[in-house]
Structure formats: C-alpha cells, structure tokens
Design a binder for these strands. Structure first.
Lengths: 156, 156
DNA sequence: GATGAAATCCCTGTAAT
DNA sequence: ATTACAGGGATTTCATC
C-alpha cells in the first residue's frame, strides 16, 4: 500500500541541505567525512543533518540503482492497465505479485494503472500480460531511450 | 542522453549476490560489516562482491530516495507528451530543462514521451505544461496511489 | 582464484567548548 | 557548529582451501 505520511508543513532546506542531498543522490555510500568536505561542514554536523533529513521524512531511504541491461533485461516497457468492471483489486494484486512489474501507479483517468516492466524479451512481455488480459485492457509502449533518468526534484 | 552500456553477456548472480543487492536496496548506507553478517560472508569478501557488481555494471549507483511530499510536492503526475511534427528534439530539450520533470522515457507508439512530474499544485502543473503546449499535445494523469513503489527486478 | 583472518588506518559518534 | 577523543568499522596484506 501507499505509505502513510505525517501531514505537516513541508521541510524547508537550506543550501547545505540541498548540497548534501545532491551529494547523497550521486553516491549514497560516501563516508560522512567526505560528504562533510563536499558541503563545507564538519563531520558531526553533517551526520546530524543526515539524521534530521531522515527524521523529517525527506530522506525515505538509501538504496541501490540497478542497471537492468547488465542483468539481461534488454527490454523496458510502460504499460497502461484498465481493469474490467469489478476486477480492479484483483488486477492490482496480480501486478503486485509479478516481480517484473518494477513500478506501478494508480492514476486518474481512463487507464487506471501505469506500470513499468523490466523484461528479457517480447515473448516474455506477452506471457506476463496474458496473466491479466482476461481481467483488464492493456496498452503497451516500449522504452526506446530515457531522456531523463530518475532525478531529484527541485529542492526549493 | 541514455547512457551507453557495454554489450556483453548478462552478469550471472549467485544467491549471495542476490541477498547482497536486496540488503543494499533496503539500506545502501549499511556498513559492510553488517551486510557481511546478513549474507553470511566475511567483510572483505562482501566488499569485494560489491566492487565486482559495480565493475560489472549491475550496480549503477548508490542513491537516496526522497519523499516528495515531505518537501511540499503534494502532487505527482504522469504526463504523456506527443510533440507536433518537427518539434521532437525541442520538446525533449525543454523537458530535460524543467526540473519538475523527474523522469522521462521516450517510447514507441503514438505518445512519444512518458514523464513523471512532482508538483506543488494543479496550478503549477498548468503553468509547466503551458511551456510545451504550443509544441506538443499532452495528456495528464494524476497519481492517486502507488501500489508498487520502485523495486528491484527479479534477480534470476 | 576466491575466501577468511589479523593488523593498521581511517571513520564515526560522543562529549565538551 | 567545531574540536578532541574513544570506539568501531574498513581496507590491505597474508595465509588458506
């Protein structure tokens, strides 16, 4: 399910916080001492800021970005899924359980879900979509390139 | 641009690699000693495996996941963008330069781009889309929830 | 060839300024 | 927020399987 979030005033970041988040986005495993050097603060202050950003919920987590092609996922697809009447929850569950769906958003409008899949082949795409094709209409787009890879939003 | 990738046989992972990637996905800043404990290896071996996964290109980078709502981005939109004839490159450039576009894929099919935006308000959405509306048709879906947040693909 | 063990070095976290 | 200090983690080397 969607994570619950404390509804509070948005955190306000200063320039140091912004520099810190940018540095962490680039390499989250950098030692605090190095991050401190980059943002021009002492290590303890830097560590304290990281803790604060986590406590505020600005930092959700530190994670690893995989290159799917290095694992043989030569195909990336964006699929819009429109469940048939009464099939919404079931379709959502099926999507959740198929690991090739690496991302899925429920959205307004005619197509209920927008999903991203990592795939080995077109045949596999067909095979996976057949698992929901009796419960939903799908429309598939194959990713040709990625002009903007996941990046940080403006940190106003 | 899309990053170039060495075209080679996909890396084959063993169970330890898989456990390691899963642990890193959960918390990329964990000390190597802790990761070692989790996967049942010594610290040096674990560090060596991390280096190997990076060298193989399986690990693209370690990064930080932001919670957009904690920064005041109460709205998330998925926008499909279909540039008018001759406007494709220009539209791509404009998208790249607007930081609220946090992700953009070029895809097959009628809609050329599928993009994700983080926004403060509907008014801001309107304002941003007006920057490309004379060069492209857009169709917008507002994210209501996220049944599957970005996760690792199956690590076969 | 890769893993495990020990020693050195560096980093992190705490407390005090 | 910084400095100093004590504790723990990381990396390198070496021995092992």
């Amino acid at each position: 399910m969607t994570k619950r979030l404390a509804v509070s005033a948005p955190a306000s970041l200063d320039d140091t916080d912004r520099a810190l988040l940018a540095a962490l986005a680039q390499d989250a495993r950098q030692p605090v001492s190095e991050l401190a050097r980059l943002v021009g603060l002492s290590a303890p202050s830097t560590a304290e800021r990281i803790r604060r950003l986590e406590a505020q919920g600005v930092i959700e987590r530190f994670t690893v970005q995989i290159e799917p092609r290095a694992l043989g996922f030569t195909l990336q697809a964006i699929v819009r899924v429109k469940p048939l009447p009464g099939q919404l929850h079931l379709v959502e569950d099926v999507i959740r359980r198929i690991p090739e769906f690496v991302e899925c958003d429920k959205v307004t409008g005619d197509d209920c879900f927008v999903c991203r899949l990592y795939l080995y082949s077109i045949e596999q795409l067909d095979e996976i979509l057949s698992k929901i094709n009796d419960r939903a209409e799908t429309s598939t787009a194959i990713v040709k390139s990625t002009p903007v890879a996941r990046r940080l939003p403006p940190l106003g």
